[in-house]
Structure formats: C-alpha cells, structure tokens
Amino acid sequence: MVQAAGSAFRDGEGLPELVPIPAGRFRMGSPDEEPGHEDNEYPLREVCIARPFALGRFPVTFAEWDRFAAATGAPRPPDQGWGRGDRPVVNLSWDDAQGFAAWLRAETGRAYRLPSEAEWEYAARAGTETPWHWGETVGPGDANCLVDGSAWGGRGTTPVGQFPPNGFGLHDMLGNVWEWVEDCWNEFFLGAPCDGTAWTRGDCGRRVLRGGSWQDVPRQIRAAARNRNGAGFRCNDYGLRIARDL
C-alpha cells in the first residue's frame, strides 16, 4: 500500500529539491510476461519500505554539481555540448556521486546518500505495477528515450522537468539519464534485503544504475530495468538522484 508523497522542500539555496516519499510496500522486479523482462529482474518479490525518506524531485543538475565543484575543487564533468544549468549532470561515476552526497552531508548536517535500488524502484513506480509509471506503452511525450516521434531521443539530455511527473511528483525517473544507486551488483534478487535497504554484498566493484536514458529504447527505461558498471566508470548518460533520511 502506498500513500501520497509530501510537499517538495530544499535544505538550502541552490541545493537539490527533495520530495518526501512515504513508507509502504510494493512488488519489485518484473513478471516473466512483461515485455522486455530480463532475467536479472527475477524473482518478483514484495519489499517493505519501512521508513519514509526524501528523494530528489529531479536528477542532480549541472548547476547543482557546479556549485559543489566550486566549493570543493571536484571536477566539472563535460556536458557533451548540450549545455549545463538545468540539464542533468552526466559523465559521473558512482564514486563521484558518493563525493556529492558527502559534501551535502557536510554542508547541511543531514543524512544525504544515494537511494537503495529498492527505494529507487519504489519511488519510480509510485504505486503502479505497469512497466512504466504512466502505463503500458511509451509515447514521445512520456520520457526522453529512443521512441518514435521524439524530438529529443538519441540527441542528448533534456532540461529536467520537461516531462510529466509520476504519482510522487518525481520527474525524469524513467529516461534522460541513468541514475546510480547504492547497491552492489547481483545477477538476481535471490537473497536481497526485503526491507528496502541497499544490498551491500555481491560484486561491489560494480554498482547498480536505474532509469534508462536518452539513448535507450523503451524496454530499457521500464521501472524494473537494471544496469551496472564499475564504480569508477563514467559515461555520457550516467548521472544521479540524491536521497536523504527523514
């Protein structure tokens, strides 16, 4: 059972906007009959998100990252010529994302972190069980991905918030950029935590990404779709969305 999310807030000027996500239960993964289903989405299982948490309303933007870089001397990732500002930051590794979370903790005294894979999927679904939170098919007005009729897909990122939010008020959960989560990579969900916490056992040299991107076809941006790469690997469609304990 999933209740409505709360009103968005920020912990300071120029910091990411957050949405409170309520506690609840959901089914994580995908059934065999779902079009695009992959074996690594097995088994479909119930997960309890025992405590509410906050999640970024949008992926972290270049404006937010560049503020962090100016304060800490962290690298300013290239924007591929697409522009900075309110576009989602790309060319980030999992290690880079951890550095951003650590800076937010130091700046605010709040428990910023990457979401767990379970928290991410719970938030992306927002109470739905369809492949995408808006339904059973993908059209050009749903997300930035490779879909017929899209003015953006395959050409790069879009500024955040160009597509309708899900039921929790979160934008760009599916498409635009892949988002790093906390978990180590495991080929299946057998043995995974059922309480919504991150799975910190398995292949921890590789970490999980969720959400799909501007250069992916619709089946790759399903709520259940999973990706992974080395913790130090950067790519022009890898970004992040920040979480915080409440």
Rank of each mutant, 00 (worst) to 15 (best):
30 S>I: 11
176 N>V: 10
122 Y>I: 07
117 E>I: 02
86 D>S: 10
188 F>D: 14
134 W>P: 00
156 G>P: 01
138 V>C: 06
201 R>K: 13
42 Y>T: 11
191 G>D: 08
149 G>T: 09
147 V>E: 01
104 L>Q: 01
237 D>L: 09
182 E>K: 11
6 G>C: 07
161 G>Y: 02
198 A>Y: 02
220 Q>E: 13
196 G>W: 04
188 F>P: 04
229 N>D: 06
95 D>E: 10
39 D>Y: 12
40 N>T: 07
160 V>K: 02
240 L>P: 00
185 W>G: 13
41 E>Q: 10
76 R>E: 15
15 L>C: 09
244 R>G: 01
173 M>C: 03
97 A>H: 04
206 R>G: 08
73 G>P: 00
97 A>R: 08
137 T>I: 08
184 C>Y: 11
84 R>G: 07
59 P>V: 15
159 P>T: 01
117 E>R: 04
91 N>D: 15
127 G>K: 02
63 A>K: 10
224 A>P: 00
121 E>A: 09
202 G>P: 03
64 E>N: 06
31 P>D: 00
32 D>F: 14
226 R>V: 03
210 R>D: 05
49 I>F: 00
207 R>M: 09
9 F>A: 13
172 D>F: 01
117 E>Q: 12
151 A>Q: 13
58 F>T: 06
164 P>G: 01
86 D>Q: 13
30 S>D: 01
245 D>M: 08
75 P>Q: 14
68 F>I: 14
37 H>F: 15
38 E>L: 11
164 P>F: 01
151 A>H: 04
114 L>M: 09
139 G>A: 00
105 R>C: 02
116 S>R: 05
147 V>C: 02
147 V>G: 04
